[in-house]
Design a protein around this nucleic acid. Sequence first.
DNA 1: GTCGTTGCAAAGATTTTGCATTACC
DNA 2: GGTAATGCAAAATCTTTGCAACGAC
Lengths: 127, 127
Amino acid sequence: MRRHADYRQLIRDVLRDAAGPLTADDLRTALVETGIGIATVYRHLKAGLHDGDFVSVELPDGPLRFESASRPHHHYFACTRCEKVFDVEGDLDGIERLVPTGFELNDHEVILSGLCRDCVSSYEREC
Amino acid sequence: MRRHADYRQLIRDVLRDAAGPLTADDLRTALVETGIGIATVYRHLKAGLHDGDFVSVELPDGPLRFESASRPHHHYFACTRCEKVFDVEGDLDGIERLVPTGFELNDHEVILSGLCRDCVSSYEREC
DNA sequence: GTCGTTGCAAAGATTTTGCATTACC
DNA sequence: GGTAATGCAAAATCTTTGCAACGAC
């Protein structure tokens, strides 16, 4: 089996092409043909976070997810039924207004939750 | 040692008086004199989440935190230096605008991050 | 006595680390 | 050969679960 592939670049590629943030195990699965181990995935993710290649997103009730830092600013919609996570375009106004006096704002994250389109549809069918 | 105290109520009391969201272990520590076990803390938190007594907040790089559901709607400021979490008053406009067509929004969460007042001060002193 | 609650410990799930081995140059 | 990266497995951390014992009534 091939070893010492450019795993960092492979992880970058997978994250760049993903529709939303991925877990470490999602990445290992995507790269399973290379034989990458989960420890190596975590090591590259951690190094990439430090280097600014990736950002991490913590969502309710799930493992940490990662995505490419180069994606345009966006937020998330977490479906409480199917547990999928969707990227959401756009941003909010007035964020600075929330920051307490003397605090220094560096980043922000908005997580919407509810039902995604598919789950709204299947819920309506069931009732 | 006293057993079968009204642990749910004790947990409610601690969360009601807290300055921000607490971890399960914070709660066990706060109630250590009662001899409560961590499993019981988690069991009441889980039941209370289901009953709508508590809400959970997942913040970057830390265990799940909990707070009273009865607190007025607010958001969080997570200091990246001292890792404390502060409640933030107020809310944002235009959240509905972000929701993709066909999705049903039930909740949202805003997590600001940066430096808290104390860390801004000590950072300035150091430089 | 019955039923629900509890503590403890074990199990799960996720993430990190130690270490010998391997690949690259 | 020397250096850095890797896989495996153990450890660490956080959370859940099984179960026997206990308390409330």
